[in-house]
Amino acid sequence: MTVKVFVDMDKCQHYGQCCFEADDIFHLDDDGKLQYVAEADDSRRDDIESAADVCPMQAITVE
């Protein structure tokens, strides 16, 4: 099982709150732009769900 992560980059404002919930999945690059891993092991699901919860723009979808 894997978790699929999608960030709507039209909504994302690069606040980086998600990074604090799952720093192996989300990070801000040197230009302050959000980068993320689109597929992760199912063991990461809870943290990824938390990242989606705390996104101020509600830009993260988890499947």
């Binding site: 606040y15 980086g16 604090f20 801000l28 230009d31 302050g32």
Partner: peptide
């Protein structure tokens, strides 16, 4: 300067 705040947090 959002990307530079993580160490402060």
């Amino acid at each position: 300067r959002t990307q530079e705040l993580a160490p402060y947090r």
